[in-house]
């Protein structure tokens, strides 16, 4: 439908990004901008937090910033 969002914040989408390369919370938020998903800021934060807790990604510091990543 024309009104549907072009990006969906799903566990599978997050998993694909984190397998590709390590990302900070800010990097992830950029991939799921509210204007693209149609979610509110609060929904985005809550859903992304739940997904990250489920995925339980590896973490590493790059340039003093914590990055999440997954291996296949």
């Amino acid at each position: 439908t024309p009104s549907s969002s072009d990006v969906q914040l799903t566990e599978e989408a997050v998993r694909r990004y984190l397998i590709r390369k390590p990302m900070t919370t800010k990097d992830l938020l950029k991939k799921f901008q509210t204007k693209r998903t149609g979610l509110s800021s609060e929904q985005t934060v809550n859903v992304l937090a739940q997904i990250l807790k489920r995925l339980n990604p590896e973490r590493k510091n790059v340039n003093d910033k914590m990055h999440f990543y997954l291996t296949e």
Partner: peptide, 20 residues
């Protein structure tokens, strides 16, 4: 805006605090 992005990142990190 970037300040909203910063606020969201801070909120997300707070949500993940125990986990991180």
């Amino acid at each position: 805006s970037s300040s909203e992005a910063d606020e969201m990142a801070a909120a997300l990190e707070a949500e993940l605090n125990d986990f991180m």
